[in-house]
Design a protein around this nucleic acid. Structure first.
Length: 698
DNA sequence: CTGTCCTGTCATGTC
DNA sequence: GTGACATGACAGGAC
């Protein structure tokens, strides 16, 4: 079990449960060869609402094993789902379904009394259809014991027939309807039986005997409470949102396939209630698929204002995370907290005392939501006292060993990594500090924000910087609109915000007016939600509550900028800062462009240099070749001169000196031997004439 | 510890 | 005169 991350500072978060259900011989097939055991391995992700502990409902979506296609049993269709079975080999669940399911809740935040579980991955090793049947039967049971339209196999498995009380253990029947008596049938063990079963499951996971004793003690308490609840169920006042979800309507939704939710307790209760061989013919083939990772779906679910990508990224100490829940989570409503707060923990214990023979090989490690704890009167103190430390230690060892937990990645919300306050996530996760403060997460988170930067980061991210905060980071702000915003803990949070704002604004102002020389080391300490460093201007703007993002300030046209300044009633300080931000921003862009241009120019010049050097080399080579050819021609001409002149004789019969005479070809083709002086003068004259002619032509 | 590179910022000039 | 832009210079951080 891993408490992946408490993105709500008061303890909400994502809880990863691994539920191993070993059901030996549960699935009977007419063909003995096909009779097989059921090993159901479920990965559940429980989305724990902020400040609202597990209570009375799980919404569970199943993902049938790919092996279901090989099922020898026909897929049931009676208690069908709104979503048709996904084609074989289909990938993860698209985010839309989860989102729709989440939005179907009808509230911006998860109802505080509900817990939602996504069956992210389910593998029925032995018989996937058996596993499906298991869930299917559970859903059918939840639908009222298998009414009209329910799968016949499911009905047979449940033995419910048409009697709505045939499956009184249905959490929906007992928890939501709060009408069905809790009289267990021969097939359906009572709560204590379930508790015994799950206790055995926990024992199989290695719990110590002492721990079991504690759990059993809590289970007994839980059982008594549950029985009391059952007796008082009719008189219990259900919350408004619950009133809207009557069993009838819920059953209808189950039956007509518009509601795919399924209580996890349904599942466990069904497991405990069904004797061996009783799940024959039931299938989960039509349980809608779910993504192998909830990341996509949850990430797209801005509805929660939760950063799921981060939420599932880390393991945290579950014990601490649970205990980190602010006290208000348990004491907010002393009258109404009777059941809601302690439910998850108590329920955990209540499910741990079942006799092992009922579910041989069953290994359940999960916080199970209670069905009906409306009237429980256990205080939060009792709850916390009832928590078995060993459980958390074991969970911690499991989770922290399984995955590396990097508290620093969680820290941006809780404190600066190198905060001078000395408080960090590590400290917030320290057991001592945790147990000393019921709201230590929030306190440390806010209280450790020793300067304006972190404060403004949390409080004003949306307005300044152009980077919208991830929901996990602003949850404590958004929650102000929630019905819990009157909590003392949150008042404390906002008090701290105000305090730090007041104490930090001058710092920011002074910083903004002493720009040169200001240390910029602080920059790396302030990360926005995308992990990007908040610029100094962004922090300044946040500090001064400037309702525009830096991007807007910098990039908007002048007219819009001026009109914006005139529209809003801004102080001189704000206007000055906005203009400085705009100037610096534009200058920054200009500098970037300038450097880019400079770099381009340099690169172009380098290219030019290379090209010119290559051309130069080519010309050198050509010139060398020409010179060589010229030399050859000169040599040949020289030889020719000597050969010809050596054969000539003057009037006196003496050989002609080649150095004094030259050969000259006339236009008529005759060759004359003339003194070089004449040749030179004539050549110059000819050259001048040719030059004049060329000039005339031009 | 030092050098290099990158980036932001300021000052100044130009349009 | 003002704003936008370009650019040199400087400083700080990262590597």
């Amino acid at each position: 079990m891993k408490f992946l991350k408490p993105w709500w500072s008061d303890g909400g978060g994502l809880l990863h449960l691994t539920v191993l259900l070993g059901l030996a011989g549960l699935h009977r097939d007419p063909d003995p060869d096909r009779d097989r055991d059921l090993d159901l391995d479920l990965d559940l992700y429980l989305l724990l609402p902020p400040r609202a502990p597990l209570r009375d409902e799980l919404l569970l979506w199943g993902r049938p094993s790919p092996a279901s296609a090989l099922s020898p049993f026909p897929a049931p269709g009676g208690w069908g789902r709104a979503e048709p079975p996904l084609p074989k080999g289909r990938g993860p669940e698209p985010a839309g379904r989860l989102l729709r399911a989440v939005r179907a809740l009808g509230a911006p935040f998860i109802p505080r009394t509900r817990v939602h579980a996504w069956l992210v991955h389910g593998v029925a090793a032995g018989d996937p259809d058996g596993a499906h049947g298991l869930l299917g039967a559970a859903a059918a049971s939840a639908a009222g014991g298998g009414g009209a339209g329910a799968d016949g196999g499911s009905q047979a498995a449940l033995g419910g027939g048409g009697d709505p009380r045939a499956a009184p253990s249905s959490p929906l029947a007992a928890g939501e309807e709060e009408e069905a008596p809790a009289e267990p049938t021969a097939r359906v063990p009572d709560a204590s039986g379930r508790a015994s079963q799950e206790n055995e499951a926990l024992r199989a996971t290695g719990h110590s005997s002492q721990q079991e004793e504690k759990e059993q003690g809590v289970s007994a308490q839980d059982n008594s409470l549950q029985q009391q609840d059952e007796g008082e169920a009719e008189t219990a006042d259900a919350p408004e949102w619950e009133a809207e979800k009557t069993t009838e309507s819920r059953n209808e939704r189950y039956l007509n396939g518009t509601d795919t939710s399924l209580s996890l307790e349904d599942l466990l209760q069904l497991l405990s209630s069904q004797p061996e061989n009783s799940l024959e013919g039931i299938s989960l083939g039509d349980i809608p698929l779910l993504p192998a990772s909830i990341n996509d779906g949850l990430n797209s679910s801005a509805y929660y204002s939760v950063n799921f990508s981060q939420a599932i990224s880390h393991d945290v100490n579950l014990h601490e995370a649970m205990l980190l829940c602010p006290d208000n989570a348990f004491t907010r409503d002393p009258a109404g907290r009777t059941s809601q707060s302690q439910a998850p923990f108590l329920q955990l214990h209540s499910h741990t005392t079942n006799p092992p023979q009922l579910l041989p090989g069953t290994n359940v490690t999960a916080f199970l939501p209670p069905v009906d704890h409306q009237t429980r009167s256990v205080t939060s103190h009792d709850l916390l006292c009832d928590l078995d430390i060993n459980i958390f230690d074991e969970i911690n060892s499991m989770s922290l060993v399984a995955e590396d937990f990097n508290p620093m990645e969680v820290s941006p919300l809780f404190g600066e990594p190198d905060s001078d306050s000395g408080l960090s996530l590590n400290s917030s996760h320290n057991s001592t500090s945790v147990t000393n403060s019921n709201s230590c997460v929030c306190d440390s988170a806010i209280g450790s924000s020793s300067d304006l930067e972190s404060l403004s980061h949390h409080a004003l991210e949306g307005a300044v910087g152009g980077y919208y905060p991830e929901p996990s980071k602003i949850c404590h702000i958004d929650l102000t609109s929630d019905s819990f915003h009157g909590d003392l803990a949150f008042q404390h949070i906002f008090h701290n915000h105000t305090y730090h704002l007041q104490s930090s604004v001058p710092e920011a102002i002074s910083e903004s007016f002493s720009w040169p020389g200001k240390p910029q080391k602080i920059k790396s300490r302030y990360l926005n939600d995308t992990g990007r460093n908040l610029s100094r201007d962004e922090r300044r703007a946040q500090a001064l509550h400037i309702p525009f993002s830096v991007d807007e300030i910098v990039h908007m046209p002048v007219d819009s900028f001026n009109s914006m300044l005139s529209r809003y009633h801004l102080t001189d300080l704000q206007v000055s800062l906005i203009r400085d931000i705009r100037r610096r921003g534009k200058n920054k862009v200009a500098a970037q462009n300038c450097r880019k241009r400079k770099l381009d120019i340099i690169l172009n010049l380098e290219d030019d240099v290379c090209n010119l050097q290559a051309k130069k080399e080519t010309l050198k080579s050509e010139r060398a070749q020409c010179n060589k050819a010229i030399n050859i021609m000169k040599k040949k001409l020289h030889d020719l001169y000597h050969d010809i002149l050596s054969r000539l004789r003057d009037d006196e019969g003496r050989p002609v000196n080649p150095n004094q005479y030259a050969l000259q070809c006339s236009q008529d083709g005759s060759v004359l031997v003339v003194p070089k002086e004449l040749v030179t003068s004539n050549y110059k004259k000819e050259a001048q004439k040719g030059k004049r002619k060329s000039e005339r032509r031009n």
